[in-house]
Design a protein around this nucleic acid. Sequence first.
RNA 1: GUCCCCGUAGUUCAAUGGAUAGAACAAUUCCCUCCUAAGGAGUAGAUAGAGGUUCGAAUCCUCUCGGGGACACCA
Length: 566
Amino acid sequence: MNERIKPNDILTEMNKELDQRIREICIKLFDEEIDPQITRPEEQFGDYSTNVALRLAGKLGKNPAWIAGEISEHLKSNQDLADANVAGAGFINIKLSDQALIKALEEPSSMLFKDKTVVMEFSDPNPFKVLHAGHLYTSIIGESISRIIEASGAKVHRVNYGGDVGLHVAKTMWAILNKLGGEHPDKLNQIPAGERSQWLADCYVEGASKADDSKIATEITGLNKKIYQLHDKSDKSSPFAKIYWTARDWSYDYFEDFYKQIDIKFEKYYAESQVYKLGLEKIKGQIGSVYEESDGAVVFRGEKDGLHTRVFITREGLPTYEAKEVGLAFLKKAEYDFDLSVIVTANEIMQYMQVVQKSISLFAPEMVENTRHINHGVVKLPGGVKMSSRKGNILKAADLIDLAKEANAQQNNSKDPIVSLGAIKYAFLKNRIGGDTIYDPDQSVSLEGNSGPYIQYALTRGKSIISKADSFDSNITIKTLEPAERSLARKLSEYPDVYQSSLNEFAPHYICGYLFELCQVFNRFYESNRVLDDPRSKERLKLVDIYCRILEKGLDILGVEVPEKM
RNA sequence: GUCCCCGUAGUUCAAUGGAUAGAACAAUUCCCUCCUAAGGAGUAGAUAGAGGUUCGAAUCCUCUCGGGGACACCA
């Protein structure tokens, strides 16, 4: 965690109370200050659990079971809250009184980031290139983490960053000029609006595939310079500039359409053309101290920090990706003065990013202190082939959405985009961020198993129960719990802890796992306990209502909408 | 070659150094007069290998094997 937002207390209320009590007991009995590390164990063991006794055993040179016994005796002395017993090697298992458990159900979630300013950068597709499956994956991750942070009270600014200058643009421009037969911007009108994005993607593939030819490579290098010059001179009217800006707009128009489709909204699109001058300026100011000249280029020697040496300014005097990142970092800081900056990128970027961040930290440490990187893997289809944007055999983001739609139509006979989109989002978020993810369209839309539609369905079903009740008062207070009700209530009470974990680690998969488990517990309850037309109807409706609200909150954090009916 | 990440049931994934390694799908055996069975209850099945640290290791360390990524003017 970063410095400015270091949480001094990340525990939920119930956790905090137990934590405090156990700390006091340990000081009183053994004169030891120790973090109880309270966890939620399996139901058979209790509601909360701590391993303090095991960890104290070494320090005190005493039997852990004996220590656990002493502590649990003192915990028991306050029976309004909990019962405690010793189990296993020396775990202390705590069982809340029904009253305490019911109280825990009302606990609001953490507001750890209240009034903090957070900049979330994610998605980052490049104009002049294809918006591929990986962009969809990273977008869904970024959006969910944004929502996780927002839910704790932060103001989150979603920003996007793309390369509208650089060699890849030059490659696309080379192919465009080739296709148009020269600098003829008028001819661009011949490309139908619906095909523009694909046309640009094809141009990139063509340019990239021919860049091995040394003559064409030289032309592309020339175009690269020309594109930078165009920005330096704010040229918008020369034929070359007209082609550039038109194609650039096409890309951004397509991005906007796409994000709308997946229900994500960026407040700002940073472009490389906008940050490279600032980057060059900052780097040139540190030549000799942080960066150094080598072979005519400006580099950062990463080896002394276990990183690689990377070029920041080329021999041509042009900024590389690294230099632009330096500029972007300073621009974001200037524009938002954030408490926390989060950047979501693919794993392959990580090692470049570390070099960039390390170099910045040497002359502006405050810049990187509050910056956090989240790295994720790549998207694959089951038994999938390797993809390469250079070769053009790439899975587009739109293709992935189509696959989900098709699967949803076939398996569920549904055309509801809320279901197919929810299926993709959930499928991407249910695994821990970091590794590659295999996207199976059929599995993702399945109503059986751990899927988005399964949770969506569970919620619509829960709501349907409440809507069928003759009367329902959400304000009633439950006074007692039957065993089956208690199991459900116990699971419901875990939500704030799970949310807290997902916030601490920026890990949406905890939410997914919990929601699925919650549905399982609910279904088990529902199987053998009537809600409507039952003497316990009021209490059970209340539990169903809490269940629905948690599912709603959880799905909202995942960015998954819920249809009215399924 | 150097550095980084990864290796868990047939498959896709979980597991703050903690209890009997949890699920889902697939397989298999049961259970629907009932609030949406799109469900529930079972059975079978896994930590790549070898050492080490620890009261305790899927998790930390070393090595081996296997997969992916990064290694100077691309992003």
